[in-house]
């Protein structure tokens, strides 16, 4: 089922691209970019949802609410849920697009693995996966050579008799940049979360690098292209703070429209513990703004 619905179509698209460009390395690059473009709406939604949550968590009202109910976890949770509902945001809304992307990412990975068939058994399996309208005679075998690499083998560039794992190094660097780019600005409030994020940010590039070092160059190439495309997508959305990666660069992420607007409540309403009035508006109307600025008449 999984193979028929995901891996087989992906593999055939990859093979079709290979037939068109006559180079498996270029086909992996194009295919990865293509899949990233197709899943871009999901990525964008994920980024926006994540940004909305970050904005919410930095909002003074949210922080005040946290402070106010710090000794009443139940009430805090209740208030938080009410706020989420009223604003139309959900702490899980950034997870859903990510979950939807998972099968695609795993399918992409597996299709590249399948197409790089190195052993006779893998060739048999690949041949059976090719749709009848594609001429398997012309497709097989796939030329695994790309630049200095054999895409079916771990990559090393021999310089003066020393094998340098160029792709593994690129994987480490691009993963590092990607994690930095995707890292939300620190709210300064939660040391534990920050420690976990930092720990992940340090470990992930190393883990990916080790994998790229040990496994076929084709996969390492996919890792690099995937990372670069993700960075490109973040940059295109104006979410990239380059100064986090390159401290000498002064740039800050483009100030886009806030994902949610949380109007401040007047003090007395807050005191009375009335339900918080919030509006889910991307751009507050002039009338609403004026009304909010109008002083309240005391009786």
């Amino acid at each position: 089922m999984w193979d028929t619905l995901i891996v087989q179509p992906f593999t055939n698209v990859l093979l079709m691209i290979t037939m068109l460009v006559k180079n498996f390395g270029v086909a992996i690059i194009l295919f990865t970019i293509l899949i990233k473009l197709v899943t871009y709406p999901l990525t964008a939604k994920q980024i926006k949802s994540s940004q909305a949550m970050q904005e919410l968590q930095k909002n003074p009202r949210y922080l005040k609410m946290q402070e106010k109910y710090k000794d009443n976890k139940e009430k805090l949770a209740e208030e938080q849920m009410r706020l989420y509902r009223e604003l139309g945001v959900s702490p899980f809304s950034s997870c859903l697009p990510m979950l939807l992307q998972f099968p695609i990412i795993i399918g992409l990975y597996q299709s590249i693995m399948r197409a790089m068939a190195s052993t006779p058994l893998e060739l048999i399996k690949l041949e059976r996966m090719i749709y009848p309208f594609l001429d398997s005679t012309k497709i097989l075998p796939i030329q695994n050579r790309f630049l200095w690499m054999d895409l079916g083998q771990p990559e090393r560039l021999m310089i003066a008799g020393i094998g340098i794992p160029v792709l593994a190094i690129l994987v480490v660097l691009s993963t590092l940049v990607q994690t930095k780019v995707m890292q939300p600005p620190s709210s300064g409030g939660n040391d534990q979360a920050a420690a976990m994020t930092n720990s992940m940010n340090m470990t992930m590039p190393i883990l990916m690098g080790v994998m790229a070092y040990q496994f076929s160059a084709g996969l390492a190439l996919y890792f690099v292209v995937s990372n670069l495309t993700t960075i490109g997508q973040y940059a295109a959305m104006g979410k990239t703070d380059w100064s986090r990666i390159f401290p000498w660069v002064k740039s800050k992420p483009k100030q886009s429209k806030p994902a949610i607007v949380i109007p401040d409540l007047p003090e007395e309403e807050e005191e009375e513990e009335e339900p918080m009035i919030v509006e889910k508006i991307s751009k507050p109307s002039a009338r609403a703004s004026a009304k909010r600025q109008r002083p309240k008449m005391k009786k």
Binding site: I106, Y109, S118, T119, P120, L121, E122, G152, M211, Q214, F215, S216, L219
Partner: peptide, 10 residues
């Protein structure tokens, strides 16, 4: 995603 023998055979 990635562990196991790097290539599968008989």
């Amino acid at each position: 995603c990635a562990m196991g023998p790097r290539a599968e055979s008989t």
